[in-house]
């Protein structure tokens, strides 16, 4: 069971706030913390945290769920939904989550800088000991997984 420390809570709150506002769905902890999104259904993106500490934030979702989300957000039929639109939604979700996460984690006046989101190719990277994961699920029972890597970013927890 993942401890609900400030780092964990900051990310969970950031994801909840973002999905409730942009995708109109709530997000809670996944009931199966061993669940992995199948590789052939995986869509993920990442962005670099530049300041005040280096690190990287990853977000992974289910491709079909993302397609559904793209359709409802842009009011498009399934055949009108392009890979670019799906990537753009994932990027904007992560961009918003990352900003809220850093805001919630850092002291009120502490500035931070994040990079632009980049679409992930293939499987997610292997995460080592200097990483933390969040396994969440939306109100529509779609998995949302977050990872942060980089010892200095993870150490913001301390």
């Amino acid at each position: 069971m993942i401890e609900h420390n400030p780092l964990y809570q900051a990310m969970k709150d950031a994801v909840s706030q973002t999905f409730e506002n942009m995708a109109f769905t709530e997000v809670i902890e996944h009931f199966d913390q061993d669940y992995q999104i199948p590789e052939d259904q995986l869509a993920w993106t990442s962005l670099v945290v530049k300041d005040p500490v280096p690190g990287e934030i990853f977000m992974a979702v289910n491709k079909d769920a993302l397609k559904e989300l793209a359709g409802s957000m842009f009011l498009l039929d399934e055949d009108e939904i392009t890979a670019d639109k799906m990537s753009d939604i994932l990027h904007e979700l992560l961009n918003t989550v990352a900003g809220l996460f850093m805001t919630k984690l850092l002291a009120e006046n502490q500035a931070f800088q994040i990079g632009l989101p980049v679409t992930g190719e293939g499987p997610l990277p292997e995460f080592d000991g200097d990483s933390v994961s969040w396994k969440l699920i939306t109100g529509d029972e779609q998995p949302v997984q977050l990872f942060i890597t980089g010892a200095p970013l993870v150490a913001l927890n301390d």
């Binding site: 961009n95 805001t103 850092l106 006046n109 500035a111 931070f112 994040i114």
Partner: peptide, 9 residues
């Protein structure tokens, strides 16, 4: 309108 806002910025 930004995701990287804080009071200092």
């Amino acid at each position: 309108i930004t995701s990287a806002g804080n009071p200092a910025k």
